[in-house]
């Protein structure tokens, strides 16, 4: 419809422009304006209130010398890597199984996806309870006779992150399954027929034909999971509170605490800018793949 649109004069399309005002304000004031504001103020020495003097990169130097920030970044890297790998593998596996024309498909799908409807707070709290060493899984297994069984990740600073990952996977894999399932069902059945005629085993068809064909689905899923990983906050708050000690701190929590608890605004701005940089590294290649070359609409 570009010909219709281009023939409209400024006034004739006034209603559409009025209707789009909220979007324009959101895009310019919030997404561009607020983001730039934070980036600019990360170069100041604001503490209780935004302002102060221009200090260049000093906040970033300080940030990268802060132990808590380094732990947060390391935690997020480990969490992110494992979360990506496991949710893609489990999500795809679930989708491939569900795609086998199984009985009770709807029931299984409902079971795998329902955690996604729950909040991260609920997810964190229920897994905190399950992983409680006194009453949870550890106690239950011990009461069956395995007296030395140990499974208390939330109280062990080396393992706490894996406890969070178990909860994160429980919450998020259903979504990945849904996306993968949509991708699998978008594959032409002739592909399957052809590979069966040629006597290619199903697993080979998946690995060499179907998965390469699903590349766009994988890319989109990857971007979505990554974006949600970087935002990781509620789950940690509910499940561990960042503990024991600092061992499950994450960047989003660092930012929140710097801004609203310890009143060290500029550190919060600098840390959130680093989060933005991390997202940009994910988004730009994706946007290039998605939008680059072809013109849409």
């Amino acid at each position: 419809m570009p010909d219709i649109a281009s023939r409209r004069s400024l006034v004739k399309n006034l209603n559409a422009k009025i209707a789009a005002i909220p979007m324009m304000l959101t895009a310019t004031v919030v997404f561009v304006g607020c983001t730039l504001w934070t980036v600019v103020y990360s170069f100041t020495n604001s503490r209780l209130l935004p302002g102060g003097d221009w200090v260049g990169l000093a906040q970033y130097e300080r940030l990268w010398g802060t132990r808590r920030w380094l732990i947060s970044v390391e935690n997020l890297a480990i969490y992110g890597f494992l979360m990506l790998v496991f949710s893609l593998v489990i999500g795809f596996l679930l989708a491939a199984i569900i795609d086998q024309r199984i009985r009770f498909e709807d029931a299984f799908r409902t079971i795998f996806l329902y955690p996604y409807a729950l909040s991260f707070i609920v997810t964190g709290l229920v897994w905190q309870w399950l992983l409680n060493p006194e009453f949870g899984i550890q106690a239950a297994v011990r009461s069956m006779g395995f007296e030395t069984f140990a499974f208390d990740p939330l109280y062990n600073s080396d393992l706490v992150l894996y406890g969070v990952i178990v909860a994160g996977l429980w919450h998020g894999t259903g979504l990945v399954m849904c996306l993968m399932l949509a991708g699998l069902r978008g594959i032409d059945e002739d592909v399957w027929k052809a590979s069966r005629v040629d006597g290619i085993p199903a697993w080979k068809t998946y690995i060499f034909i179907v998965i390469p064909m699903m590349r766009p689905v994988f890319v989109t899923t990857l971007v979505l999971i990554t974006a949600s990983i970087i935002k990781l906050y509620d789950l940690v708050i509910a499940q561990t509170g960042g503990g024991p000690g600092l061992s499950s701190e994450v960047p989003a929590k660092f930012v929140f605490d710097a801004m609203f608890v310890s009143q060290n605004l500029a550190q919060g701005f600098a840390a959130s800018t680093m989060m933005l940089v991390a997202v940009i590294f994910v988004i730009i290649p994706w946007a290039y793949l998605e939008f680059g070359g072809k013109k849409r609409g």
């Binding site: 570009p2 919030v30 997404f31 989003a252 959130s272």
Partner: peptide, 25 residues
Amino acid sequence: WRFRGANVFFTILIIGAFIPYQVMI
């Protein structure tokens, strides 16, 4: 009812969806 510039705002909007909330809060 597309108008000139609409896509620019829309693109910002979609990319903005990926900005961590912490940056804008």
